[in-house]
Write a protein that binds this DNA or RNA. Structure first.
Length: 863
RNA sequence: GCCUGGGUGGCGGAAUAGGUAGACGCAAGGGACUUAAAAUCCCUCGGGCCUUAGUGCCCGUACGAGUUCAAUUCUCGUCCCGGGCACCA
């Protein structure tokens, strides 16, 4: 055995062996229990970053562990390959999005292989290939048939100078990131998926996902946002129009004193037409269309509105209510109209004060009356009805039902529920995405592409136009086509492409039979593998990606294509990889390699200025606080890199990068290596000890127990808790103990127990540092891959202790401890504790009030 | 504003059923080996107190209360930090 641990030689050797032996290839095997392990596939952005390394390392440990436990493990990898960065790179570097993407894939695949991940590479897929997206187009057609895909008008961020649609992240403070000019909202006809049809079902099953972090299901529930209430219709004065509102507080109807419509509400323009307010209203609507509509932006705007010139009639009180249009009313939620009850809604209260609107109290606290003139805020609590006609005196919760019945009987409203969730807009006016397979015909309207014409290929000989515009509408051979229904020769192909979340909503199904060319997937394969048993990825996908995938799985289920309804049985959301930032007054943020140490202080390598060490933040290119995995692989190898990612923090928490910590992980592997090298001659031809512990002397017996305790702990930590950090520290303790074994005083079984110890340590670490473990196991004389070795089981009899240490507290404070036979009964333990010399000092002359004995651990004496 | 995590030594973290706070690692200090250094191995390592230096006492898990024989762990309140968000009518 080489005396020095040389990861580079070892890792290349075993990676080659795994690849050539095809050991990670799997097929459906009804004899074995399946385990589908999946990590979120990466966007091929250029190279692997530490977030990927962490995510995929965690997954790999689980995959290798389950494999050793005898499961048939499906562990695939692929590429989420459509998307905007490819277009941006194309513009910046004058390279085609396709070549950019495929080059990145090739490079990143190589990096993943260097990290030793146990993927079945035969199942690799890239979503930008026609073999993949043709089935997405096929599904679109099925969804269109069912009315699950439809078109409606909605808004996009539009940059006039660039003549292009912008993503939210391309809008910076209301301005276009490219030209810096103001962005406005433009209405376009776009494609949607009817996810709201499944809102109730998606919500209901949030409580049936016990393997998901509660935080994620809670976020999903809040996102779907079901609320019960009523729709109420208000007649508009001097007009045949009605305004319909949704409210969760029908009980406060008598207190509604004005109405607010969203600026985009169709009635806004109509109601103000020909009135003196018309100009002001039009100006307001125009101004609002310029505003950024994201939640955070809206948050910062002051609440404002203008009078439309029209009034409506409160169906309960008969009161005249002025109709306003206001920036806080959202067209997307409810009906786009809000009945405003200033006495019982804080936002309405503020709005009423600002514009001098009437405030009427209709719910009072049980113990007092509310005086409008003395109110400083709205009263939103439950209470007793007042000023509400026949409903006075009721509890407001009862009044909710009563008022709804009252409205229903007069056909002025009805009970209803509303969801916060909106339909999924999938249209993107972009090039690098899957074409939506429909044709627009002057005679026939929307005509779906016939199935036999799929796939609609994305032309790959086109270039992104100036300003980032999609070339698709300008490519004649693509966009000009014949109508498949009537044959008209002037039809136009749809040039919107699909949101990339569509690809990631079914890739896990495709992995089950990635080469399938007769459908989205092979039914037998998908029924065998799905659902995913363990899904692992960043918490940033907690809502959208996971919700869309759950939705797609339901759609596939209801189309009769798949058995399961929930795609992911267990979910692990891992934390971010963070590092402190470093910056120089002259050069701004610095990469770690741009910082040198001068007399114990950090300095800039470019200008020698002292460097400021900033907060620990998520690694990001813009802050330059990044570590390049390549450099780590070069210096320490894959096993050390993996080990540190696992050891530094539990998976769901953020991980703080530490160069010295990496060094420590490397030292640990070296320590095992040396221990093995040191003992190899003694243990090479010895069988690992596997007898009763009684035949061992005290210190060996202690080691034997430690070995089995470690086996138990590592298994539990991986299996139940994904606590790789504590699993590793348990093995460290075992190694530390073995370092204390002296060869000089060897007894009959020393070699056998040492062999067991080393063998166990290595096998327990095999999922985490696979190359290292394979190598040592080979040195110990095994011919087969460690992957084929069964996961070790602990012996109960080795864990048994003759003596237990009991600690003694007096009034809850630790005062003494003693050892006692493990089979001693409670009374004996109690007596021994009371008789203890140190304990005596504290209880002498005092009255014993209580003595508590806790299961073989502790005695607490209360005096 | 709403939702959601989190606060434990110089640092990352541990404490799995309310029962010995600080496992393991990093950093630091000391020692051994060496001509020397590196590497390695061993020891110390939360704070304070003491004319008994100990198998000693007190304090200590963001802060303040509470429940309990016993709280890092459970309850309530406060402060601070991170993440998400589409004004939830």
């Amino acid at each position: 055995m080489d005396l020095k641990y040389d990861p580079r030689a070892i890792e290349a050797k075993w990676q080659k062996y795994w690849q050539e032996s095809g050991i990670f290839k799997v097929t459906e095997d009804p004899e074995k229990e399946k385990y589908y392990l999946l990590e979120m596939f990466p966007y091929p952005s250029g190279k692997i970053h530490m977030g990927h390394v962490r995510n995929y390392t965690i997954g790999d440990v689980v995959g290798r562990y389950k494999r050793m436990k005898g499961f048939n493990v499906l562990h695939p990898m692929g590429w989420d390959a459509f998307g905007m960065p490819a277009e941006n790179a194309a513009i910046a570097n004058n390279i085609h999005p396709a070549s950019w993407t495929y080059e990145n894939i090739a490079y990143m695949r190589k990096q993943l292989k260097q990290l030793g991940f146990s993927y079945d590479w035969d199942r690799e897929l890239a979503t930008c290939t026609p073999e993949y997206y043709r089935w997405e187009q096929w599904l679109f057609l099925k969804m269109y048939e069912k009315g699950m895909a439809y078109r409606k008008e909605s808004f996009v961020n539009w940059c006039e100078p660039c003549q292009t649609v912008l993503a939210n992240e391309q809008v910076e403070a209301g301005m276009c990131w490219r030209c810096g000019k103001a962005v406005r909202q433009k209405k376009l006809w776009q494609w949607f998926f009817r996810i709201t049809d499944y809102a109730d079902d998606l919500l209901l099953h949030c409580d049936q996902l016990p393997g998901w972090p509660e935080k994620v299901t809670t976020m999903q529930k809040n996102w779907i946002g079901k609320s019960a209430g009523a729709e109420i219709r208000f007649a508009v004065e001097d007009s045949p129009e009605m305004i319909t509102v949704f409210t969760t507080r029908p009980d406060t109807l008598f207190g509604a004193t004005f109405m607010c419509l969203a600026p985009e509400h169709p009635l806004v323009t109509e109601l103000s037409k020909g009135k003196k307010e018309e100009k002001a209203v039009a100006g307001f609507v125009e101004r609002m269309s310029m505003q950024d509509r994201s939640a955070k932006a809206l948050e910062s705007y002051e609440k404002e509105g203008v009078f439309t010139g029209a009034c409506c009639i409160n169906p309960a009180s008969g009161r005249k209510m002025p109709v306003y249009t206001a920036n806080f009313a959202l067209m997307e939620y409810g009906t786009g109209a809000v009945m405003s009850v200033p006495a019982h809604d804080q936002r309405d209260f503020e709005f009423a004060q600002k514009y001098g609107m009437e405030i009427i109290v209709v719910v009072r606290p049980e113990d007092k009356d509310l005086d409008v003139s003395a109110m400083t805020e709205a009263y939103a609590e439950p209470g007793i009805m007042v000023n509400s006609g026949q409903f006075d005196g009721m509890e407001n919760e009862t009044a909710k039902e009563e008022i709804i019945s009252f409205l229903e009987s007069r056909e002025q409203g009805k009970k209803t529920v509303s969801f916060r969730l909106r339909d999924w807009g999938i249209s993107r006016q972009r090039y690098w995405g899957a074409p939506i397979p429909v044709i627009h015909c002057e005679s026939c309207g929307i005509v779906p592409v016939p199935e036999k014409d799929l796939p609609i290929l994305l032309p790959e000989d086109a270039d992104i136009l100036e300003g980032g515009r999609s070339p698709l509408p300008y490519i004649d051979y693509f966009s000009k086509t014949d109508c498949p229904r009537c044959g008209r020769t002037d039809a136009r192909r749809e040039t919107d492409t699909m949101d990339t979340f569509v690809e990631s909503s079914w890739y896990f199904d495709r992995y089950c039979s990635p080469g399938c060319d007769s459908g989205m997937f092979d039914r037998k394969a998908v029924d065998y593998w799905m659902p995913v048993d363990q899904y692992i990825g960043g918490v940033e996908h907690a809502i959208l990606h996971l919700l869309y995938s759950r939705y797609f799985t339901r759609v596939l289920h209801d189309l009769g294509l798949i058995d399961c309804k929930e795609p992911f049985t267990r979910l692990l959301t891992q934390g971010m990889v963070c590092k402190e930032t470093t910056s120089c007054p002259e050069h701004g943020f610095l990469f770690p390699s741009q910082v040198k140490w001068q007399e114990g202080n950090p300095a800039c390598t470019l200008c020698d200025s002292p460097v400021t060490v900033g907060r620990v933040e998520k690694m990001s290119k813009s802050k330059k606080n990044v570590i390049d995995p390549n450099a780590l692989l070069e210096e320490y190898g894959a096993d050390t890199t993996r080990l540190f990612c696992l050891f530094a923090a539990p998976p769901e928490r953020d991980l703080e990068w530490s160069d010295q910590g990496v060094d420590g992980s490397f030292r640990f592997l070296n320590r095992i290596w040396r221990l093995t090298a040191d003992w190899l001659d003694d243990i090479r031809n010895v069988a690992p000890y596997n007898d009763a512990p009684e035949n061992l002397d005290d210190s060996l017996r202690e080691l034997y127990r430690k070995i089995h305790e470690t086996i138990r702990k590592v298994g539990n930590d991986i299996e139940d808790r994904f606590r790789f950090n504590t699993a590793i520290s348990a093995v460290m303790e075992l190694i530390n103990l073995m370092y204390g074994v002296e060869k000089e005083n060897k007894s009959a079984h020393t070699d056998a127990v040492m062999r067991l110890g080393i063998e166990s340590a290595v096998i327990l670490l095999a999922p985490m540092v696979p190359h290292f473990s394979e190598e040592i196991r080979a040195e110990l004389g095994y011919r087969e891959s460690i992957l084929l070795a069964p996961w070790p089981e602990y012996r109960e009899d080795a864990l048994v202790k003759d003596e237990l240490t009991i600690v003694v507290q007096v009034n809850g404070k630790l005062r003494s401890r003693f050892d006692i036979r493990a089979d001693a009964d409670e009374e004996t333990i109690k007596e021994k504790a009371l008789a203890d010399e140190k304990v005596q000092k504290f209880i002498e002359g005092k009255k014993l009030r209580k003595v508590i004995v806790a299961r073989g651990k502790l005695v607490n004496i209360v005096v």
